[in-house]
C-alpha cells in the first residue's frame, strides 16, 4: 500500500514539474522567434497588424505598478483589520467581522468584476471627467483604467492579508504585551511598538501572499482595466499580464498565440520568485 500513497504524494511534485515544463515549452519559442529584447522591452503590441509587433514592456510594467498600488491601498486596511480582530475588538464585533472576512475570500472573482463595472467604473469616470475636462490630449477611458483595476484588486487581496496577519498577531506571546503594559504603555502604543514589530515576519509573508494574489488575478480586472496597451498611469486604459491572455486567447493563432503563452511564462516567472521569497520568509517566521 505504501507505494500507492507514495505515488499520491508524488502527484503534487509531478504537477508542478509538468506545469513548469509546459509553460517553458509553450512560452519560450515566441521569445526566440521575436527576439528577447524586442519582446520584453518593446512598447508596441500589435499582434494582428500586417507587420506584427509583440512588445510587452508596458504590459509587464502595468502588472508591477498595478500590484504595487493595490498593495499600498489594501495592506494598511488589511493589517489594521487584523489588529482590530486580534487586539482591540470587543468579542461580539469579532464574531461579525471575522466571518465577513472569510466570506469576502469566498466571493468569486467574476462577481468582483461585475461590481467593478457597475460601481467602481462610473465613480472613477466622474472623477476622470472632472480632472480632464477640456483637456484635448487626454484619451477618456470611461472609467476603465488603472485606478479602477487597482481598487478592485485592493479589495480582493484584503481577506488573504487579514487572515495571515491575524494568525501571526495571535501567535505573539501574551507576556510581551503584558510587559509593555507594565511599563505604562497604552493599548494602542503596545500594538504599534510591540505587537506589530513582533509579528513582523508573519505580516511580511501576508504582504507577499497578497502580491501573489494581485498579480495573478485575471477575470475581475479584465472588465475594468480598459485593455489597451499603455503606460501604467492612473487614468490610462491599461492591460495586465493576466488580462492580456484572457482577452486575446480565444481568437489568437500561430505566433500570436505563442506570444500569449510567453506572457503567461513571464507571469509564471513572477509567481515562482514570489513563491521562493514566501518560502524563505515563512521559514524565517517559523524559526523566530
Amino acid at each position: 500500500m505504501s507505494v500507492v500513497f507514495f505515488v499520491c504524494g508524488g502527484g503534487a511534485i509531478a504537477a508542478v514539474l509538468a506545469i513548469t515544463v509546459y509553460m517553458i515549452a509553450c512560452g519560450f519559442p515566441a521569445l526566440t522567434k521575436i527576439g528577447v529584447l524586442d519582446m520584453l522591452f518593446g512598447t508596441v503590441w500589435a499582434p494582428t497588424a500586417a507587420e506584427p509587433k509583440f512588445g510587452i514592456l508596458y504590459i509587464i510594467l502595468t502588472s508591477i505598478v498595478g500590484t504595487m498600488l493595490a498593495i499600498v491601498i489594501g495592506v494598511p486596511i488589511a493589517v489594521l483589520t487584523a489588529v482590530f480582530l486580534s487586539e482591540t475588538a470587543p468579542k461580539p464585533m469579532t464574531r461579525i467581522v471575522k466571518p465577513a472576512v472569510e466570506l469576502l475570500a469566498g466571493i468569486p472573482s467574476v462577481v468582483y468584476g461585475l461590481l467593478g463595472i457597475l460601481i467602481v467604473k462610473p465613480v472613477i469616470y466622474h472623477i476622470e471627467a472632472a480632472i480632464y475636462a477640456g483637456d484635448a490630449t487626454h484619451q477618456m477611458t470611461g472609467g476603465a483604467n488603472l485606478i479602477s483595476a487597482v481598487l478592485v484588486l485592493a479589495i480582493m487581496i484584503l481577506p488573504t492579508v487579514v487572515n495571515v496577519s491575524e494568525t501571526s498577531l495571535r501567535a505573539v506571546p501574551q507576556h510581551l504585551r503584558n510587559s509593555s503594559y507594565a511599563l505604562g504603555a497604552t493599548r494602542v502604543g503596545t500594538v504599534f511598538k510591540v505587537t506589530l514589530p513582533a509579528a513582523r515576519s508573519g505580516i511580511i509573508s501576508a504582504v507577499v501572499l497578497g502580491v501573489g494574489r494581485a498579480i495573478g488575478e485575471a477575470m475581475a480586472i479584465t472588465m475594468v482595466a480598459g485593455n489597451s496597451v499603455n503606460l501604467p498611469l492612473p487614468f490610462n486604459s491599461v492591460r495586465f499580464l493576466t488580462t492580456g491572455i484572457v482577452s486575446e486567447m480565444s481568437y489568437s493563432s500561430g505566433l500570436h498565440r505563442e506570444a500569449l503563452f510567453t506572457i503567461g511564462l513571464v507571469l509564471f516567472a513572477f509567481i515562482m520568485v514570489i513563491n521562493i521569497v514566501l518560502n524563505t520568509t515563512l521559514k524565517k517566521a517559523g524559526e523566530e
Partner: peptide, 25 residues
C-alpha cells in the same frame, strides 16, 4: 520537504496559469 514545497507552490499558482497549462496539456 520537497513535496510540501510543491504543494505550497501549487497553491500559489494563479488560476489563469492553470488555465493555460490545462489548455496546452
Amino acid at each position: 520537504s520537497f513535496i510540501e514545497f510543491a504543494t505550497e507552490t501549487l497553491s500559489g499558482i494563479p488560476s489563469i496559469i492553470f488555465g493555460l497549462f490545462g489548455m496546452a496539456f
